[in-house]
């Protein structure tokens, strides 16, 4: 069928391309590439994506997934490798299946919309749906399960179990706890800005910070004023911390060094998703 005789078909083609791009999530493509190459740098090169962006994406995915998606092994002659877990492989397959179903239903929807008098631009709808998804500038997002709730007059302290050996304490206003309807066993996302955390190397002094998480320095990204430090915690979780260049030098931070990441319970924002 010639396209010029079928304007509807042409519209559908261009709209399909838009939807395709939206669904081809970089992160799923990155997982796919990791599975194929068994190395993060090779996977990043193949997309292409910078190594840092790929590293950050893997950390973010491991942080919000309740099972590990990517396992990094360090050492070895080739500097270790990066492997997908069976759970990640399942996720990719499920995503691909969903993508096909999503495309089909959008096509049906587009057809129905074109017939109705109240025509709505399907791309406007798609943009709105994208915006409705939770989006945040905070670098650190960790998924956890509520393991304890302490209620005060104004504040509520919520403890989240983020990993087998990892807990995060969050202090939120009582009203917020009520509106989130926080309950034991509930799944929540803990969000912490990278500038709300401090680093220290030893345990010889006591600090009032409610969260003092032990980890290992994995990456240092120096800037003109501030440095970005990536710290690997237990359970394949990690945090990004922004400190000044001067602090970085004063602490003498080096990759592989044990470190403690501290932040107040009041610096943690809790999010519930529907």
């Amino acid at each position: 069928m010639a396209k010029k005789n079928n304007p509807m078909g042409a519209a559908k083609l261009s709209f399909s391309a838009d939807i395709g791009q939206f669904l081809t999530d970089n992160r799923i493509r990155l997982l796919d590439a990791i599975g194929e190459y068994g190395s993060l740098s090779a996977a990043a090169r193949s997309l292409p994506m910078s190594y840092k962006a790929a590293w950050d994406a893997v950390n973010a995915m491991n942080n919000i997934s309740d099972k590990e998606l990517v396992i990094r092994s360090t050492g070895g002659r080739n500097g270790g490798g990066t492997q997908l877990t069976p759970y990640a492989k399942k996720l990719i397959n499920m995503y691909r299946a969903m993508e096909v179903e999503y495309q089909r239903s959008l096509e049906r929807l587009h057809q129905a919309m074109a017939d109705s008098s109240e025509a709505m631009d399907i791309n406007d709808f798609r943009r709105l749906m994208t915006r409705l998804h939770f989006n945040s500038s905070a670098r650190n997002q960790l998924l956890g399960v509520v393991s304890s709730i302490t209620i005060g007059a104004v504040s509520v302290i919520v403890e989240l179990k983020v990993g087998d050996r990892l807990h995060i304490s969050a202090a939120i206003p009582k009203e917020a706890a009520e509106s989130l309807d926080i309950q034991y066993g509930q799944e929540l996302l803990a969000v912490v800005n990278s500038s709300q955390m401090i680093l220290h190397a030893n345990e010889t002094f006591k600090l009032s910070a409610d969260n003092q998480l032990k980890g290992i320095v994995r990456h240092i990204h120096p800037g003109a004023v501030c440095s970005d430090i990536n710290v690997e915690l237990s359970d394949q979780k990690s945090l990004d911390i922004t400190i000044t260049e001067e602090s970085c030098a004063e602490l003498g931070l080096v990759i592989g060094q044990p470190i403690i990441v501290s932040f107040n319970a009041s610096s943690v924002i809790l999010c519930r998703y529907e």
Partner: peptide, 8 residues
Amino acid sequence: MKLSARNT
């Protein structure tokens, strides 16, 4: 006391 916080 070695701490990354600049104000102690």
